[in-house]
Design a protein around this nucleic acid. Structure first.
Length: 603
RNA sequence: CUGCCCGUAGCUCAAUCGGAUAGAGCACCGGCCUUCUAAGCCGGGGGUUGUGGGUUCGAUUCCCGCCGGGCAGGCCA
């Protein structure tokens, strides 16, 4: 279990003008505070939503906060504030209560007003100016292009895409980026795996390494190359395995055997490069292009789109990797030891120093990652956010250390960690072993449970928490399934409107005044909370807040729907209820849109 | 062994900078379709928030110890 983000985001400031209910209430309280205790007039005023209705619509613990400095009892201060609170059409009454809380009860008119606001704002209801148009680079998924995306990548995709939507809705300009690891050993392993499968097809008998990529998709790529080029890339088995140490017995799983397998694979890669010469690049490019196209298609089908696919290889081709290492060296943060170049990460808060260039001259993944992040800073984004698998948490200090050593403000980099999802079927954990090649792919998941259920389930937990993904529940067509539960509320509203049959455009002008029942007013209050949910989701990088909110809103709508009839005889009351219906539909649709889930008109 | 994180109802999880009587869903039990979609609603039982201390008006929340679990600790990515 890991923290949601590595360091605190910049403070989010509310606009100075009271443009919303909460802001107006705060101003009223500030006015009362100024007359009760002028010396504390600029204290922070926290307004919260009490859990219990008896504690009002909003409450503040201001009296408790001030008790010490004013040398008065909290109850006394609360009573004084209540007496000095200016009269307002928003407020029905105030109460000093509990240990020293001030509870505010809104007038019915104030509660109903949100319906009018929602009908006016439409798709934009919940949109906030918090980000002030600041640019954000959000990097997520960034899976190695060495095979199909699996269900772990799916969670990063769903969380990242939802977070991007939320940040955009909260007033940021978001660039969505996928970092393509097209330069490392993993790609060489995929390239060689493809060639070995090709050789197999041509009847060349070579033991396929257990640590190479064994998936069926590798055979598919090999078959297509074989179809197009015939025997052009065939070499003798003796040549292919020349100079390799050979494989240890399959049963052995000790360190020595593992090391031998790795050495064997590296030797095969070296032979492939030598024997294929220029054609090696063909295999490499073919596999890369195939896997990226596959990922793009898969993610696109999942409603996840990127503005840019950033190539790791380009960082080498433009000399960026050399440049950042040289910059670190020039600043005295790099030294030579055992033939390798080490970055003094420990001097910048990391546990130990890290290699940036290996003894054999190859740069490490870390080196290109430094270059990548330096490049992000050069592009001038106000905020840089990485969404990583939680198993990479130990990697954060070294990247931050490198940025600091380059003289960059490493606090501008924020890292969201996403835990893996574990699939359950019939109450049993489904196996997800990569080395056996039998992992569950994102595509299989999407086909089995559908895109909507997958997107929603992935963000049903805080992203840094383990997620138990119940496949049976995700597929069930019942109220047990939270996706259908929320979507059904939306479809119900649409159905009522269809039943009514009038001109939907007119509803915008309907007067919510006749709304008066407890359920209706509670629903209004819930609708007014949506911008607060968006704010929290954006501030905490927590799209699950939106999912929770939608479930609560749907609950209150279903309750109202079952308790009271909407299409009643009285035209004024019917119109008011239709207005509330449209407001509910609007908020459900806006929330679902942030999560990349469809809002069906019928189910 | 060291570092980071987590521990809340039978299960999966929430809990607003430290706030009021710790909340949902699932599972379980009992009701509701001649009336706008029953993919819905209403009601019920369920808790020493792992444990022992500390900080204070107040602790699930902050600090320390212990117990249990996860992840990380490569010239891998």
């Amino acid at each position: 279990m890991l923290p949601l983000r590595y360091n605190a985001p910049p403070p989010v400031r509310r606009p100075a003008m009271a443009v919303d209910l909460k802001g107006e209430l705060t101003e009223l309280l500030r006015s009362a505070l100024a007359s009760v205790a002028p010396e504390c007039a600029d204290s922070a005023i926290g307004l919260e939503r009490p859990r219990q209705a008896a504690h009002g619509d909003y409450a503040t613990n201001l009296p408790l906060q001030l008790a010490r400095s004013l040398r008065k009892s909290p109850r006394e201060i609360a009573a004084m504030l209540a007496a000095e609170l200016p009269a307002s059409p928003l407020i029905e009454r105030v109460e000093a209560a509990g240990a020293g809380f001030l509870n505010l009860f809104l007038s019915r008119a104030a509660k109903r007003e949100v319906v009018r606001r929602i009908l006016e704002a439409g798709d934009d209801y919940g949109r906030l100016p918090l980000g002030g148009g600041a640019t954000v680079l959000l990097e997520f998924v960034s899976a190695n292009p060495t095979g199909p995306l699996h269900v772990g990548h799916g969670r990063g995709a769903a969380c990242g895409a939802s977070l991007a939507n939320v940040l955009e809705f909260a007033g940021h300009r978001v660039t969505r980026e996928f970092y393509v690891n097209d330069a490392g050993r993993q790609m060489d392993i995929l390239t060689t795996s493809t060639w070995l499968r090709y050789l197999e097809l041509r009847g060349v008998r070579i033991a396929f390494p257990p640590n190479a990529y064994r998936g069926e998709y590798v055979r598919d790529m090999a078959a297509r190359i074989e179809e197009a080029h015939g025997s052009r890339f065939v070499r003798d088995a003796e040549e292919v395995i020349a100079g390799t140490p050979g494989l240890p017995e399959a049963e052995r799983d000790d360190d020595e055997a593992d090391a031998q397998r790795e050495a064997h694979l590296d030797a095969l890669i070296a032979n492939a490069r030598r024997l294929l010469a220029d054609d090696y690049a063909y295999f490499h490019q073919f596999a890369l292009t195939e896997q990226l196209a596959d990922a793009r298609e898969d993610l696109g089908g999942f409603g996840v789109h990127f503005d840019r696919w950033f190539s790791e290889r380009s960082l080498f081709e433009t000399g960026m990797v050399e440049r950042v290492v040289a910059a670190l060296e020039k600043a005295g943060h790099v030294y030579l030891q055992d033939g390798a170049r080490w970055f003094r990460a420990a001097a910048f808060g990391d546990e130990k120093d890290r290699v940036v260039q290996r003894e054999n001259g190859q740069y490490t993944y870390f080196a290109s990652d430094i270059a990548y992040h330096a490049n992000k800073f050069e592009r001038g984004f106000a905020r840089i956010i990485d969404v990583w698998g939680a198993d990479h948490h130990g990697y954060i200090p070294r990247v931050k250390a490198a940025l600091a050593a380059l003289g960059l403000d490493c606090d501008r980099l924020e890292v969201v960690l996403v835990q893996f999802a574990v699939l359950y079927r019939n109450g049993q954990k489904t196996s997800m072993s990569t080395r056996a090649g039998e992992f569950v792919t994102l595509r299989e998941l999407r086909e089995e449970v559908g895109n909507d259920a997958a997107r929603f389930f992935y963000v049903l937990r805080k992203s840094d928490q383990h997620l138990d993904f119940d496949l049976d529940l995700a597929k069930s067509e019942s109220s047990d399934n939270p996706v259908y539960y929320v979507q059904y509320a939306h479809a119900r509203v649409c159905s009522v409107l269809a039943q009514w049959g009038g001109d939907a455009a007119l509803i915008r002008g309907f007067d919510p005044g006749p709304l008066a029942s407890a359920r209706e007013l509670a629903l209004c209050r819930r609708l007014a909370e949506f911008p607060e949910a968006v704010e929290e989701a954006a501030r905490e990088f927590a799209p699950h807040v939106i999912a929770f909110y939608l479930r609560e809103l749907a609950t209150e709508f279903h309750g109202w729907y079952n308790a009271e009839r909407i299409l009643v005889e009285d035209p004024a009351l019917r119109d008011a209820r239709l207005a509330l219906c449209v407001a509910v539909r609007t908020v459900l649709a806006n929330g679902l849109r942030l999560l990349g889930v469809s809002a069906p008109a019928s189910m």
